[in-house]
């Protein structure tokens, strides 16, 4: 089969699914509520920044907005795909779809595209708010583009995983719950596991410093930093280009603006630095190994997760079935 046929198959499926979604929901209300909630929060954020004497509010506003969009997106998106496959089966439309000439991959990709497209509509609705941040000044266009791209990708991954769960599990309520558990594990779970892992890898060491001899505890976040990498907020914050530090009067680089993304990113990169426990060694700058970026690992992990989810969905859509999971009817 040619790539062109396959593409048209994917588009057929995506267009159909998108139309079904469009007719099923009260999108105008949902998108309106989404926009208003974000606009109110952004307005409050601006007010808070101005009152605290911040001069350039564009950058922190954008950072805060993107973190909010990601957080709300992670709440909304699992619901978009949690019933993609088993919901169709429950409604009795899956088997007749599988007996058409659409391949399982076309069905999986088409459904994913429609769900992701819906998620991107939510993202598109926030564009006026992004424009507001840019209007405030001091926001590089590259920073806007990269943060939007990362959020879009991360929402796509959640769509793919939700769809995969709906293909694996017979009941749509179970897959919906598990989609939310997945998002919880990715956001809160990574943070908890990382914190526990740091505590677990902490060593005690005897340190002799001239006449003093004491025991110190040395944490080794550099051994477990990767546990934090898949966290969507970490990926977003660390991937956002840093605001160029300005030189202060003494010629030292100094970050003048508050930047929530940059601050989070720096904090995460610090976990990659190895602290040898030599309490005084770190005074001399340059001795410490600079922590490298974390986001490439996190983003790669998430994208791999999404691709794997699509591959698994495709497998589960393949017919004829040799064996059937319990409680699954073919048609």
């Amino acid at each position: 089969m040619s790539a062109r046929t396959a593409l048209s198959g994917v588009l057929t499926m995506a267009g159909h699914e998108f139309r079904l979604r469009l007719r099923a929901g009260r999108w105008r209300w949902l998108l309106g509520a989404w926009f208003i909630a974000l606009a109110v929060l952004l307005g409050l954020m601006r007010l808070a920044l101005v009152r605290s004497g911040e001069e350039e509010v564009g950058t922190p506003m954008l950072g805060g907005l993107m973190l909010l969009v990601l957080a709300l997106g992670l709440l909304v998106v699992p619901a978009l795909t949690a019933q993609s496959v088993n919901g169709d089966r429950e409604r009795g439309v899956l088997a007749t779809l599988q007996t058409t000439l659409l391949t399982p991959l076309e069905i999986a990709l088409g459904k994913l595209l429609a769900a992701w497209g819906t998620a991107l509509v939510f993202l598109a609705v926030t564009l006026p708010l992004v424009a507001w941040c840019m209007f405030e000044g001091g926001v590089a266009i590259g920073r806007v583009a990269i943060t939007l791209l990362v959020v879009a990708l991360l929402l796509g991954v959640v769509c793919a995983v939700g769809q995969c769960l709906s293909a694996l599990l017979a009941r749509s309520t179970t897959s919906a719950v598990l989609s939310y558990v997945f998002v919880f594990a990715l956001t809160i779970g990574t943070l908890v596991v990382f914190t526990l892992a740091v505590a677990a890898t902490t060593e005690e060491r005897e340190v002799q410093q001239r006449r003093f001899e004491y025991t110190t505890q040395i944490a080794h976040p550099e051994r477990v930093w990767w546990l934090l990498a898949p966290n969507p907020f970490v990926v977003l914050a660390d991937a956002a280009p840093r605001v160029e530090p300005e030189l202060n009067r003494r010629g030292r680089p100094e970050r003048s603006t508050v930047d929530p993304l940059g601050a989070m990113g720096d904090a995460v990169r610090e976990t990659r630095e190895s602290d040898q426990g030599d309490a005084f060694a770190s005074i001399a700058p340059g001795d410490r190994e600079p922590g490298g970026p974390v986001w490439p690992y996190g983003l790669a992990f998430n994208v791999a997760l999404g691709v794997g989810a699509v591959a698994l969905t495709e497998r589960r859509l393949r017919t004829p079935y040799r064996s059937l999971p319990r409680a699954v009817r073919v048609a």
Binding site: H16, R19, L20, R23, A24, R91, G92, V93, A95, T96, T99, T100, L101, A331
Partner: peptide, 18 residues
């Protein structure tokens, strides 16, 4: 086989909104 077969299941749903 699919290209040459029309199948009508005993119970089936439909896309109610279309």
């Amino acid at each position: 086989v699919r290209a040459r077969t029309g199948w009508m299941p005993d119970s089936f749903g439909s896309y109610e909104t279309l």
